[in-house]
Design a protein around this nucleic acid. Structure first.
Length: 482
RNA sequence: GCGCCAGUAGCUCAGGGGUAGAGCACUCGGCUUUUAACCGAUUGGUCGAAGGUUCAAAUCCUUCCUGGCGCACCA
């Protein structure tokens, strides 16, 4: 069944009807079902931590006010599982001894409602930290029934339907703890990347998403239109060319973590909008970028997972050892016995080598034809053979990072763009576009610079063992429902 | 874009030509310090949509919608 919110409202009308009646009764009693706040004295986690050492059955005079969402209720509101972002706190109210006010109110509450409660903390004879409800306040009345919550592993609960999980992510987050954990880990990961770079003198500077040209990568762009300027614009497909302009302007270490848009297929590894980080550092090169990338990934992995080895889809990925480093030509030669060059080399690499690179591996020395923004190799023989100073990092057979010694020669850059233009004429829709403004910028002087780009989503997939990119994007791109 | 698979109650799922099912949730009653509480009863459906075949379609056929996976493209 297609599950739109409207359909839910429609088909759960009885359940919703009941709640609307309760809502009306609450209003009759002069109770605001959507009040403006609550004086919370403690979070659930603080209570659990503070009283974890109570003896079973021990009571205290400690009065706390906590608030959150009711996930479960047993025995006529005798036991209530209240959740805030920290987790669960059990509430207790004996039907026989509860005050008149509670007797009137509790039947009007439902699972899913937000409430605030005040009362003394104790531990039940079964060892559960519990708050005895003295006062209860409705904080938000819910009209939709809550799907079952996943708490134990004894029964299949939660929302299994992936379409509902993506379209109504809030429900997924409410009932499926692992979904919430993934997004939390992703946020932590991004935070640690910023910590790492900020502490090394990098500045995060935002560059435009709306552009008159979509450059810096080979990809099909999204087109949009600016009304006042009466001009078509492109959503960016990379942050590269603007960040390099910033280096030209004198910022020696810059980066941007931001959304990129590519008008291409959707798959387990591809979402039309995704997040990249690109960073540029003056006076270093591709080797410096390799060292930085490796160090940063190990740092972030350690901070997020507190370990350097992790399982991805049943395979152990090991960040604890030095990452493998091998040239593309060597890797292809090992696999096929052939010494190839140019586009052929890259094709052979993609066909025979890429999938085998499970543990983190830097592949370096790329053909110039597919690297229009990278500097030609400093080794003259390699340069003549058509190699540039570039690497890509592969993990689990997936391209995870891409870096080069940036091309700083404006005349060579112009040639490269022209070469791309030829490929475009030959039908390659995704060849890089000619960007005169960028060449002009280069003519003002880009210092020797190393640059690196990394897919935030793909890294997040690894660190959260997510099979699909949609599992680490809160609201993945979906078709409109009819 | 192509191929394969899926869509049945609020949730999780059975059923695959002959009265639309179960568990949980909801509602009511019982029990009353539970831990998936428990016991009993009631309620709940356009079987994704539209056509077709048939005495009869959730079931078979066609088309469409939405989603998943694989391939292609890409990061």
């Amino acid at each position: 069944m297609v599950k739109t919110q409207d359909n839910n409202v429609e088909s759960s009308s009885n359940l919703r009807e009941q709640r609307l009646e309760k809502l009306a009764k609450l209003k009759e009693k002069g109770i605001d079902p959507y009040p403006y706040g609550f004086e919370r004295t403690h979070r659930v986690g603080e209570i659990q931590e503070k009283f974890k050492d109570l003896e079973d059955g021990e009571r205290t005079d400690f009065v706390a006010s906590v608030c959150g969402k009711v996930h479960n209720q047993r025995n006529d509101w005798m036991f209530v599982d209240l959740f805030d972002e920290d987790g669960k706190l059990q509430l207790f109210s004996d039907a026989k001894t509860r005050p008149e006010e509670l007797k009137e109110l509790l039947p009007l509450f439902d699972k899913g409602d937000y409430i605030g409660v005040t009362g003394k903390i104790r531990k039940t004879p079964r060892g559960e930290v519990t708050l005895d409800i003295e006062k209860i306040t409705l904080l938000s009345k819910t009209l939709q029934p809550l799907p079952e919550i996943v708490e134990g592993k004894k029964r299949r609960l939660g929302i299994a339907d992936v379409e509902t999980r993506y379209r109504q992510r809030y429900l997924d987050l409410i009932v499926n703890p692992e979904s919430k954990d993934r997004l939390r880990k992703r946020a932590l990961m991004v935070q640690e990347i910023r910590n790492y770079l900020d502490s090394r003198g990098f500045l995060e500077i935002e560059t435009p998403i709306l552009n008159t040209e979509a450059g810096g990568a080979s990809a099909k762009p999204f087109i949009t239109h600016h009304n006042t300027l009466d001009m078509d614009m492109y959503l960016r497909i990379a942050t590269e060319l603007h960040l390099k302009r910033l280096v030209i302007g004198g910022f020696e270490r810059v980066y941007e973590i931001g959304r990129i848009f590519r008008n291409e297929g959707i798959s387990i590894k591809h979402n039309p909008e995704f997040t990249s980080i690109e960073l540029y550092q003056a006076y270093t090169d591709v080797t410096g970028m390799m060292d930085l990338t490796e160090e940063m990934l190990k740092y972030v992995c350690d901070k997020v997972l507190a370990k350097l080895k992790f399982e991805y889809q049943g395979t152990e990925i090991d960040f604890s050892k030095p990452f493998e480093r091998i040239s593309m030509q060597e890797a292809v030669k090992k696999a096929t016995g052939k010494e190839l060059f140019g586009v052929e080399l890259n094709e052979a690499f993609e066909a025979h080598v890429e999938k085998t690179l499970i543990q983190p591996t830097f592949i370096y020395d790329y053909p110039v034809e597919i690297s229009p923004l990278a500097k030609r190799h400093r080794d003259e023989a390699k340069s003549e053979a058509g190699f540039v100073e570039r690497f890509e990092l592969f993990i689990y057979g997936r391209e995870t990072a891409n870096a080069f010694t940036e091309l700083t020669d404006p005349l060579d850059q112009k040639e490269r763009f022209l070469m791309q233009g030829k490929q475009r004429e030959e039908g390659d829709e995704e060849a890089h576009i000619y960007d005169q403004d960028f060449i002009t910028a280069l003519e003002y002087g880009l210092p020797p610079t190393g640059g690196m780009g990394l897919g935030i989503d793909r890294l997040a997939m690894f660190l959260t063992d997510a099979a699909s990119i949609r599992d680490i994007i809160a609201f993945p791109t979906m078709k409109q429902q009819v």
